[in-house]
Simulated assay, not measured.
Amino acid sequence: MKIGSRTIKTAIGTPISISIAQVLGLTNFVSAGILTILCIQPSRKRSVLSAWHRFLACIAAALFSIVFFELIGYHPLVIGAMLVCFIPVTVFLKVTPGIATSSVITLNLYSAQSVSFSLLTEQFLIIIIGIGTALILNLYMPSLENQLKQKQEELEHYFQIILNEIALYIRDKNENWSGKELRICEDILQEAMDLVLLEKENHLLRSEHPYHDYFLMRQKQLELLEKMLPLVTRLPNRDNISLKIADFFENVGDAVHPGNTASLYLDELEDLRRKFDQEDLPETQEEFETRANLFRLLHEIEDYLLLKKKFKKSDVNEKKQKTKKTGAT
């Protein structure tokens, strides 16, 4: 079982905050550890927002506690009445994540059965120590670059399988493929986008991320691949042009990787379309349906390649000496 960085930071931060509170001689020193546990977050951005929300909520809870406990009394029902008024205020201030944290301060003041300046000072120090320790620890976030790279490689591997399976079906009517790679790709894309969101939140001054555009592009390509499958299954018999299209799909599948030489395959597709137009006109209903589905299939794979072409600057000039099979789609 893998232990995440959030768990490690919680295990480190909790005893640190408790120790600091003890050294300062604070009565409710354990509360500092509880605040740290509640404030550890999975990203820097969430950590900063969480610290701010919880700090405001704790200050508001202290003020509400003073008013309700001192004016009405120290009774469990008063806590309920205070929460009825306090929670809507946190909603209005948009600091609802701080409700659980602020309850620690509220219960500390309730337990004391009286409010004094020294007690309020202690609570303020507990807030600073607990939230501050979590905030400092959350400044360190491990890079997700390796995980994103792995997701990219996995996704491209399954894209290759899907494209080659389409080629096999066009060529040999291979019906053994279950199509499970499509679902696997969807899962990988969801996991990858979650990682990208976390990585973006770890860079407070950067709103863009290169992997976000990449996985978004692959997501749109996957939707096109899913649209191609019904067209492929409606192809009755193979002919000369369908075999050429099968070869084209196989070449595109073999060339899936992060680079961008999609323009090479768009040129090849244009040549294929010209050959398609030069074929004799269909004479039967079956031939007409085959030709129509092949034409739509060419249109879908063209959109697939155009997505990659628009994604990043072309690598064709840098790799023009290489064969088309080394191109990237």
Score class of each variant (00 low, 15 high):
Q22N: 15
L305P: 03
N237G: 05
A61V: 02
F249P: 00
N202K: 03
V23M: 13
K310H: 14
Q150K: 13
T101E: 11
R46F: 06
E289L: 15
L298N: 10
I128A: 15
T36E: 06
L63N: 08
L144A: 08
A112D: 10
D254I: 09
Q321I: 12
I131E: 02
R218K: 13
L281A: 14
L306W: 09
A51D: 04
L205G: 00
K309D: 12
V232W: 07
A11N: 02
K9A: 09
R6H: 12
T133W: 03
A51F: 10
L120C: 07
P230N: 08
S31F: 05
E154C: 05
I166F: 15
L148P: 05
E153W: 00
L224M: 07
T90V: 00
L197I: 12
T36H: 04
Y169G: 00
L298R: 02
G25L: 02
L120M: 12
L225Y: 02
L77E: 10
T329L: 03
L272K: 03
S65R: 05
S5Y: 11
T27F: 08
I40T: 06
S118C: 02
I87M: 10
L195P: 00
A11R: 05
N108H: 05
L144E: 11
L139F: 14
E289P: 00
V104L: 07
L144R: 14
E270G: 06
L305A: 03
Q221P: 01
I20C: 08
N251H: 14
T261Q: 14
S103W: 01
K244T: 04
R44T: 02
M228R: 03
K308C: 01
K227E: 14
E145N: 11
F29I: 06
S102C: 05
D277M: 13
V91I: 12
N260Y: 07
S31T: 12
D172I: 05
E153L: 10
D303R: 15
I166Y: 15
G80N: 05
G132V: 07
F29N: 08
K2G: 09
I8K: 12
F249C: 06
